[in-house]
């Protein structure tokens, strides 16, 4: 009984710390975090695109692993596009903050396509996986088109 009470207190204080940390994260830090997610998405998506285009041999294990990584990564960057980061120098265009609905829509499109990829990667249907990798690429590109300035 006492133990669970302690657990609750510890959990609550941890939550408070996490909450406080989130509130205190400097805009520059948020930008670095979301950039880190994008870099990792590139790292794990690149080989899949190569396989879908027949440039690299198809490897179902790598596809399954990367699809799972990407499924998780795709949910991570969005809270770092906080309005507080509006003036930090980055490749994000003002449209991210000015057209929030469209940006959210583009973000959930990516999440949905990557979740689908995660699911088909488990089905073992190579053609379906390759088609879905193409759909993911289009979701990435559609968002980059309107919300990212390539330097």
């Amino acid at each position: 009984m006492r133990k669970s009470g302690v657990t609750v207190v510890v959990a609550l204080s941890l939550g408070a710390v996490a909450g406080a940390a989130l509130a205190q994260a400097k805009p520059e830090q948020l930008v670095r975090q979301r950039q880190a997610v994008m870099i990792l998405q590139g790292k794990y998506f690149g080989p899949l695109a190569g396989m879908a285009q027949g440039k690299a041999p198809y490897n179902a294990d790598i596809v399954r692993r990367n699809a799972a990584f990407l499924d998780n990564l795709s949910r991570m960057p969005w809270d770092a596009f906080d309005p507080a980061t509006k003036d930090v120098k980055s490749n994000a265009l003002p449209a991210v903050f000015e057209q929030q609905d469209k940006f959210k829509e583009a973000a959930s499109r990516l999440e949905n396509e990557l979740h689908k990829l995660y699911e088909v990667s488990r089905s073992g249907d190579e053609n379906a996986v390759k088609t879905q990798i193409g759909a993911v690429g289009k979701a990435c590109g559609a968002c980059h088109e309107n919300f990212r300035q390539k330097q």
Partner: peptide, 15 residues
């Protein structure tokens, strides 16, 4: 491939 060397996907118009 429509991808930059770091795996970054280009915008959809050029894609």
């Amino acid at each position: 491939s429509g991808l930059y060397p770091d795996g970054d996907v280009m915008g959809e118009t050029m894609g």
